[in-house]
Design a protein around this nucleic acid. Structure first.
Length: 320
DNA sequence: AGTGTATCCTGCAGGC
DNA sequence: TGCCTGCAGGATACAC
């Protein structure tokens, strides 16, 4: 479900309330969402402070460091804490663990402050206590996931380096240049939609924004990337970035399950041009939007704006 | 190299 | 109302 804009929105919602706090695993209600041994996960997380909250592709990343005020007893690798020491001083040279959260199709990360009147999450999978050193009451960080396709993994620096290296450039970052995109497209025979969904090619695009970007760039989603004309690469580059940026500004797209860290819905759904709109008129040319299926997943396009250009392949289509 | 298929799981919408 | 089928924003392993 959640793609880059949704993950980015969650990160922005979590960061102010999580940075500098100490985490304790309060309960692992569904061990299947935790990568590896649940006990090891719990021991690794307990007592760590959150140095920063970030994102890589669709993944939410909490940088963890041994805390100077948490319950974790001092060890040979974490110098004894003096009372009142700031957490970040201990973090400076400590090996950083990373808690990487992939939300799958229906995952949510909800930060619930003490006294929050909203009803408790219906499908909690992992709960964390969020402890602050300013005397304020602890909050609750809940990983909620109806379908449990999401994963929480605690990564050491070596595992993180491998994970990071296997992922393509951030589409909103400086490495994702027009030239890099052109080279990547030319080197592959994949259909454009499959290429965009491949996290090793570019990190963070999912099925919604792949359809939207292809529509903006007027390229058929099944077009082989190596066959995309050179003059369409710049529009595609612009389209990928603009649709992701606009979706971030709108706090993401809520179709069903996605919520921000505060439990709110994203508003970009109202601005989708083609995704989920089979039969509706194309916002550009009024031709009916078409749904096609390939690689076992839906794609949406305007048959007039995004012609197949001689591709022999035919696709199962429907008007609804 | 790239595709189709199956798998993990639950909930919901639509057809009958 | 109830049952059945298909579908869903992701990622991976497998055979071909």
């Amino acid at each position: 479900m959640p793609e880059l804009p949704e993950a980015e929105t969650i990160v922005r919602g979590l960061a102010p309330g999580l940075r500098g706090t100490v985490l304790h695993v309060d309960g692992i209600l569904h061990p299947d969402v935790v990568e590896g041994e649940p006990d090891a996960f719990r021991r690794g997380v307990d007592g760590c402070s959150v140095a920063s909250v970030g994102r890589r592709g669709k993944n939410i990343v909490l940088d963890l460091a041994p805390s100077s005020f948490g319950a974790r007893p001092p060890t040979s690798s974490s110098p004894a804490a003096s009372p009142g020491a700031r957490p970040r001083s201990a973090a400076a040279h400590a090996p950083i663990l990373r808690l990487v959260v992939n939300l799958g199709m229906s995952g949510r990360l909800l930060l619930r402050e003490e006294g929050d009147p909203s009803p408790p999450p219906s499908h909690p999978a992992v709960r964390f206590r969020v402890v602050r050193d300013d005397g304020s009451p602890p909050a609750l960080l809940v990983y909620h996931d109806i379908r449990r396709f999401g994963r929480l993994e605690l990564m050491d620096p070596e595992r993180w380096a491998d994970f990071h290296a296997r992922m393509g450039p951030e589409p909103l970052g400086p490495r994702f240049t027009r030239a890099a995109l052109a080279a990547g497209l030319e080197a592959s025979r994949m259909p454009l939609r499959s290429w965009l969904l491949d996290q090793g090619k570019v990190a963070g695009v999912g099925n919604i924004y792949a359809s939207e970007a292809a529509w903006r760039a007027r390229i058929h989603p099944a077009r082989r990337t190596a066959d995309i004309p050179a003059e369409r690469v710049a529009p595609l580059h612009t389209s990928i970035r603009s649709v992701l940026r606009e979706a971030v500004e709108a706090r993401g797209t809520t179709l069903r399950d996605y919520r921000t860290a505060q439990g709110w819905e994203g508003s970009f759904g109202a601005r989708l041009a083609v995704y989920g709109r089979a039969g509706d008129p194309c916002p550009r040319c009024r031709a009916p939007i078409r749904r096609i299926v390939f690689s076992n997943r839906s794609a949406f396009l305007c048959p007039r704006c995004q012609p197949e250009e001689g591709e022999l392949a035919s696709f199962e289509t429907s008007a609804t």
